[in-house]
């Protein structure tokens, strides 16, 4: 995205030249709008479509692109619109997106099928700087849709397992019916210390497991703050509660990483929609070290 300095000077010269050409009124080559900015999406094939729940699904795109866990794409369908979606995988072969149907675009995406196409641009933003955390214990706290970007983190850790010590997962779902990444949970359970919670039992079922918020699991847990790094992603109220609990456990602000969600249009730090007190969530985030963005809840 930033490699365009050259393009700029080049085209400045070109346009000056153009002017002279214009004076002599000879035909000139039209300037081509270049795509560095990434305003124009690319067509990407869906190589797998998986329904996770009645309103959640995961798309796998044939897209070989380098990215960090936590970065996001602007995904959409021309004529309907686009919206920001976190990359929930970590691979140089494909990109996975896990989406909840809440509105126009997300519902339209939900109607697609394997073999179909989406239009996407990205990756955007700053993800989790994983190489900084080598040698640390990692605690991952996710709620609902917020588990999607964390799946990328978990896949990164799986690929670089020796770089990290203990990995604790705390994942909260609304109910057993709302579980996304059910298959992956089974394998995570074997590799990491996995804790799953459900806010409530499903309406019509004979589920008799434990019920409670993920925050309660963390409150009861016995870990301390030594060599630990915490990633939290979920609804603001959940992130706030978790941060408060961590503060009681003597965690420092710079041990905590949060994700902010804002309305986004451009993804490139221009349109202004995602700004929080001068910080662009799309460009400076969406992942922030907590001390960089203490005010994530407010305007």
């Amino acid at each position: 995205m930033i490699k365009n300095k050259k393009t700029k000077t080049k085209s400045t010269k070109k346009s000056l030249k153009n002017k002279k050409v214009k004076k002599s009124r000879t035909a000139k080559k039209p300037q081509k709008v270049d795509l560095v900015y990434g305003l124009v999406p690319k067509k990407k094939k869906i190589i797998d479509f998986k329904r996770e729940t009645s309103i959640n699904f995961t798309l796998k795109l044939d897209w070989k692109v380098k990215h960090d866990p936590g970065q996001f794409m602007m995904v959409g369908i021309p004529g309907i619109g686009e919206c920001p979606i976190s990359i929930c995988s970590y691979s140089d072969q494909y990109v996975e997106l896990s989406i909840r149907e809440v509105g126009n675009v997300t519902k339209a995406l939900g109607n697609l099928k394997k073999g179909g196409f989406v239009f996407a641009r990205g990756p955007f933003g700053r993800g989790y700087p994983m190489h900084y955390f080598k040698g640390n214990n990692v605690i991952i706290v996710g709620g609902g849709c917020g588990i999607a970007p964390l799946k990328g983190v978990i896949e990164y850790i799986t690929k670089n397992r020796t770089d990290f010590k203990d990995v604790l997962l705390y994942l909260g779902y609304r109910s057993p019916d709302d579980v996304i990444f059910e298959e992956q949970l089974k394998s995570w359970e074997k590799k990491f210390c996995l804790n799953v919670s459900y806010d409530k039992a499903p309406a019509k079922s004979c589920y008799d497991g434990k019920v409670g918020f993920v925050t309660e699991l963390i409150r009861k847990s016995k870990f301390d703050n030594k060599n630990k790094i915490v990633f939290i992603c979920g609804p603001p109220i959940m992130m706030e509660t978790v941060i408060n609990i961590l503060k009681k456990k003597k965690f420092n602000n710079d041990q905590i990483y949060i994700s902010a969600e804002r309305r986004m249009q451009c993804g490139g730090g221009k349109c202004g929609h995602c700004m929080i007190h001068g910080v662009y969530v799309c460009k400076d985030g969406p992942v922030f070290r907590y001390d960089e963005l203490m005010d994530y809840k407010n305007d």
Partner: peptide, 10 residues
């Protein structure tokens, strides 16, 4: 800033 907007700069 960051990336260059072709539409504007044309």
């Amino acid at each position: 800033e960051g990336c260059w907007d072709p539409y504007y700069f044309l």
